[in-house]
Every structure is written in structure tokens, then in C-alpha cells.
């Protein structure tokens, strides 16, 4: 399949701060690519470079097979873009803003109703001024604006930010359907589970450098590692646990915390007969994964 987005040796600095450094990756047609990284990692900078809002220091971006030169804008006709930290012009009604974006995008297939439904956006709210919108409503309007013309490439910077869990679920499902219809989706997120749920491929960026690009199944297999928190009642039990189950744990009085790649069964066996006050197993957050897997990047 041809690459819809190809990024080659892309670097951008803001004074002494590195935005992105020697970034190389590609996204194929019809692929759902999750761009994953903590805040400040360089996701938004990469997206803004793709949209030609900022000029790269070096490197090249190819979109739809053509090199994007400074000042190019025609390729945006087939792109649906949602910025991060979306702000809307306040003195305009939601519906009028969608009409304006539609007109600016030079029409195309209108799928406004589809996204109004997927995002549970009441059509009556389109007659209200955007200054009266909540954060979630503004985000929904931005998403509808980005996707209403059925773009060939959707570039979405943290699209589910500010959406409530129920809406987020139906939105991600609809986005997945859009991907199945052949639309290439490039979205950024700092929520691992969201990328796992939606993406075919995930790129992980940290401190402006792409540390990994892999299929979502590979990423999931790495996610077998879980974060375990244990709170013991007696110190003797804690010591006994560490004897039975040696691990690199952080200890705070009677509390233990560590990343485990063993099965929950091993843990339950190790806890047999010990008194514990609390016990949680959760996904480690992104920063912990980075620290665990990519320390060599530093």
C-alpha cells in the first residue's frame, strides 16, 4: 500500500527547546495510526509541521505521495484537521461555523449528520453561539468540522479530549468505521488504552524522538506488564512477600509498588496466607512505560 504520510529526518526546534528530532516514519493508506506520547513529547509539533503551520529546520514531509513545501496548501483539501486545545471563534453559532468550514473546504461529501449522531450532539445546539458551549461541546463541534467532509486523511490532535466516557466510546467506534471505509486516520493521544482500542499501528514519541513504531498487537503484548500496588497490614508479611516474590519494588512503609511481567496467578500464589489491606493491578501510565522500556533513549 502506498504511504499517505511519510516523514523523513524531520527536525524542529524552538530556540533551545527541541520540538522533534530526526523523526522518520510513514503511515499507509487506510491505516489508523495512533501517535502516542506524554504531554510535551512532540506530537502537536509533528502535526503542526504536517499542516505547514510551522517550518521544519530540516527533513521532509510527504503527504499523498507529494513533498510538502513551505506555502503548499492544496493538499489540505483532502485533510480533516482537529487541533489540540481547540478554541472556537466566540461570536458565531455552531451551525454557521460548520457551514463556514464546509465552504472553506470546498464542499465534498457531507457527513455532518453521521458525526452529530456519533457524538450525541443535539442539532438544536447548532443554533447556539459557541461561547455558550461547554468544553466537551466545543470539542465535538471541532471533530464534526474535521470529519464532516469525509476526508481522505484525518489528522486529529487528541480528539477524545474533553468527551465524556459514553460519547468517547461511540465516537471511537465510529472513527474505527471511518477507518474501515478507507480513510487514513492519524491521531495523537496520551491515553494508551485509546490507542490500543482504535489504532492499527502506534508510534511512540518521547522528547521529540520516535522511540517505537509497531503494530498494535506488539504493543499490547508489551502491555502484559502491569503496575501492582500492595498495602500490607504487618511488616512481617511484606518481608515474607518479598522473599517469595523478589521484584524491583518501590517501598513506602507498608506499601509496595512495582511493574510486573508475571501473571496474576503468580502474584496470588505469592500472597497466599498473608494479610493485605489493599491490592490493585493497573496499566502503568505512559511515563512509566517509557521509563521501563526506553531508558536507553536518554
Amino acid at each position: 500500500m502506498p504511504a499517505i504520510v511519510e516523514i523523513s529526518g524531520l527536525s524542529k526546534s524552538f530556540g533551545r527547546t527541541i520540538g522533534v528530532k530526526e523523526l522518520n516514519f510513514s503511515v499507509e493508506e487506510g491505516e489508523i495510526f495512533g501517535f502516542l506520547g506524554p504531554n510535551g513529547a512532540g506530537k502537536t509539533t509533528t502535526i503542526r509541521l504536517m499542516m505547514n503551520f510551522i517550518r521544519p529546520d530540516s527533513g521532509q514531509i510527504y503527504i499523498f505521495g507529494k513533498a510538502v513545501k513551505w506555502g503548499d496548501y492544496k493538499y489540505k483539501r483532502e485533510i480533516g484537521y482537529l487541533p489540540g486545545e481547540l478554541r472556537l471563534p466566540p461570536g458565531v453559532k455552531g451551525g454557521a461555523l460548520l457551514d463556514y468550514w464546509n465552504e472553506m473546504s470546498k464542499g465534498g461529501k457531507s457527513e455532518r449528520d453521521r458525526w452529530l449522531k456519533a457524538l450525541d450532539f443535539k442539532p438544536d445546539d447548532l443554533h447556539r453561539y459557541t461561547r455558550e458551549y461547554s468544553r466537551g461541546m466545543r470539542q465535538k463541534l471541532g471533530v464534526i468540522g474535521a470529519l464532516q467532509n469525509h476526508p481522505r486523511l484525518a489528522v486529529l490532535d487528541e480528539p477524545s479530549e474533553g468527551l465524556d466516557p459514553l460519547v468517547k466510546h461511540s465516537f471511537l467506534e465510529e472513527l474505527k468505521k471511518l477507518g474501515d471505509e478507507g480513510c487514513t486516520i492519524f491521531f495523537s493521544s496520551h491515553v494508551l488504552s485509546e490507542v490500543e482500542h482504535l489504532a492499527d499501528t502506534a508510534g511512540i514519541i518521547r522528547k521529540g524522538t520516535l522511540v517505537s513504531k509497531e503494530g498494535i498487537e506488539d504493543l499490547k503484548s508489551r502491555q502484559l506488564r502491569k503496575k501492582v500496588n500492595l498495602h500490607f497490614i504487618h511488616e512481617a508479611d511484606l518481608m515474607e512477600f518479598l522473599r517469595r516474590y523478589p521484584c524491583q519494588a518501590e517501598r513506602n512503609h507498608l506499601h509496595l509498588s512495582y511493574i510486573s511481567d508475571k501473571t496474576p496467578n503468580d502474584l496470588i500464589n505469592a500472597l497466599h496466607g498473608l494479610d493485605i489491606a489493599d491490592f490493585t493491578i493497573s496499566q502503568p501510565d505512559l511515563e512509566e512505560i517509557f521509563l521501563e522500556y526506553y531508558q536507553d533513549v536518554d
Partner: peptide, 15 residues
């Protein structure tokens, strides 16, 4: 400053 310019310039409109 507010970023609303991006919502215009992300469409096929030259600077």
C-alpha cells in the same frame, strides 16, 4: 494567540 487561525488555515486556503 488563541489558535483559531489554524481552523482557517487547515483548509485549502493559502496564506
Amino acid at each position: 494567540e488563541k489558535g483559531t487561525i489554524e481552523l482557517t488555515l487547515c483548509r485549502p486556503l493559502s496564506r
